[in-house]
Design a protein around this nucleic acid. Structure first.
Length: 231
DNA sequence: GCCCAGGTGGGTA
DNA sequence: TACCCACATGGG
């Protein structure tokens, strides 16, 4: 990881993204529980498919912890089918809801009482919750300052020359958290902006992700010399 | 018809 | 530790 130059560039990249796209207003959900459900359903899936699965759950009144706890795994799987991997994800949703009840009486508000480090560790112990899902729940559902790293984050910052692609999830997370103010609002907006940037840039040609940002970076900081994208 | 998407867990060497 | 693979739908 090119830490010596990468850290200071994180601020500039954020400013370019924010000035280009504006506030993103994430996460697109009505309740914290819906955020957590969405975080699990979006694993390796397109958000448009997740929306269909969430709409199905909503129409059946299952976007409530109690209701989801009571529904059969089979029925749950049928309803979330559009999000893909529906059998696995139904198990994951069940595991998460059981965890909520076992540890916090089914109340997400009670989860907020825990410290960030302890809570992240507990979430990672839930079957089906990996680091990205845990951080998404922490940041977007529980409003804890935990930076979310995803495939877009790695792809974009590799293109920008900040990462070389060999970094682990925790290394990338640490790079952002050590070089940015510990702010829920900032982490929320930054991750959402990265996703927005990549979705736009990747719409027609995924390998070129980051090119638009690189051009903006050159305009924004003409004195700097960002790493050239690989051919 | 082919490729890929906002991952994760389990198996194997 | 580091790979490899299964899990699956829907849109471009």
């Amino acid at each position: 990881m090119r830490r010596s130059t990468g850290g200071s560039r994180l601020h500039s990249v954020y400013e370019i993204l924010f000035s280009g796209f504006g506030p993103q207003g994430w996460w697109p959900a009505r309740t914290s529980f819906e955020v957590a459900v969405g975080a699990i359903l979006t694993q390796n899936a397109a958000w448009s498919n997740v929306e269909k699965a969430i709409a199905n759950l909503e129409s059946e009144g299952l976007l409530l912890p109690d209701a989801m706890r009571g529904v059969s795994e089979k029925r749950l799987a049928r309803l979330i089918r559009p999000s893909g991997y529906f059998n696995i994800k139904a198990k994951k949703l069940k595991a998460f809801v059981n965890f909520m009840f076992d540890e916090f009486g089914g109340d997400l508000k009670a989860m907020r009482e825990d410290g960030l480090k302890e809570l992240r560790s507990k979430l990672l112990s839930v079957w089906g919750v990996g680091p990205e899902t845990a951080d998404s729940i922490l940041l977007y559902a529980l409003e804890k300052p935990s930076f979310v790293v995803d495939a877009y984050t790695k792809r974009l910052f590799c293109r920008l020359g900040v990462l070389d692609g060999s970094e682990s999830y925790d290394e990338v997370k640490r790079l952002f958290e050590e070089n940015l103010p510990k702010s829920v609002e900032l982490y929320n907006e930054y991750h959402a902006l990265i996703v927005e940037q990549c979705k736009r840039a990747c719409l027609k040609s995924r390998p070129r992700c980051g090119e638009c940002l690189l051009r903006a970076y050159c305009r924004f900081k003409p004195s700097s010399s960002p790493t050239r994208p690989r051919p």
